[in-house]
């Protein structure tokens, strides 16, 4: 009886500090989370929103335009598709100008590159028939070789390409309208980017065309 009493007292006496610390830290972490999470969410959103103007309008370069005022209102939505039992989902951003007409689309896709996942943002014109820009969001390709896919010079090759035929990366000099130059020594990275773009474009073209028709109908 006395022993169990002693044991009980011991546990509470021993553990009270840890329990107190748990409560103190639990409270402070919740406070930190509540104050900072809006800032963090805004950071995540802005990352993509800052890139979109450069992708949509063909006059801007595909460099990030931080000071640019957004002439478009951007609203995100998801395009889903089923393929071979896999459920795919693409985040698409719809850019509407001041009059409410659709100025273009920015679609995000990811896929396997040479070393790891590549995540990219593709700009399309309102009819989803021409590529207006490409931005690589995340890649871990070989530095000095594969990671040149992030360079503006290489990405600009995609501007103006039509989406009706698949784009392919050619090892030498690109000749046809649907070909681009692969990076020397980084053929697989270049081909992966093309593959990701082709797959996404094939999946989202019909839904985007439908959305354009709907919005034109709505305006009438």
């Amino acid at each position: 009886m006395e022993m169990t009493d002693r044991l009980n007292k011991n546990f509470l006496v021993q553990g009270w500090l840890v329990i107190l610390l748990c409560l103190v830290f639990g409270g402070s972490l919740t406070a930190v989370q509540l104050t900072l999470s809006p800032v963090i969410e805004a950071n995540k959103k802005n990352e993509i929103l800052q890139i979109i103007p450069g992708l949509i309008s063909e006059e801007n370069s595909t460099a990030i335009n931080k000071e640019a005022t957004l002439p478009f209102t951007v609203s995100p939505f998801y395009v889903n598709s089923e393929k071979q039992g896999r459920h795919l989902s693409y985040a698409v951003f719809e850019a509407k100008d001041k009059d409410g007409n659709i100025s273009g689309w920015a679609a995000r896709a990811s896929g396997q590159g040479y070393a790891d996942k590549i995540e990219l943002l593709l700009g399309l014109n309102p009819e989803a028939e021409k590529i207006t820009g490409l931005f690589i969001l995340e890649q871990k390709e070989t530095p000095g070789l594969g990671n040149k896919i992030s360079e503006i010079k290489w990405r600009d090759q995609f501007k103006g390409k039509k989406t009706d035929k698949a784009i392919s990366a050619i090892k030498g000099k690109a000749v046809n309208a649907n070909e681009i130059d692969a990076i020397t020594g980084a053929t697989i990275s270049s081909k992966s980017v093309c593959r990701i773009i082709n797959q996404m474009v094939g999946d989202i073209r019909p839904p985007l065309k439908m959305k354009l028709e709907e919005s034109v109908h709505e305006k009438k």
Partner: peptide, 15 residues
């Protein structure tokens, strides 16, 4: 080993 899983993935799933 870099790129082995990429190649395997493309080979096994076709994209």
């Amino acid at each position: 080993f870099t790129g082995v899983d990429s190649g395997l993935r493309v080979a096994l799933t076709g994209g």
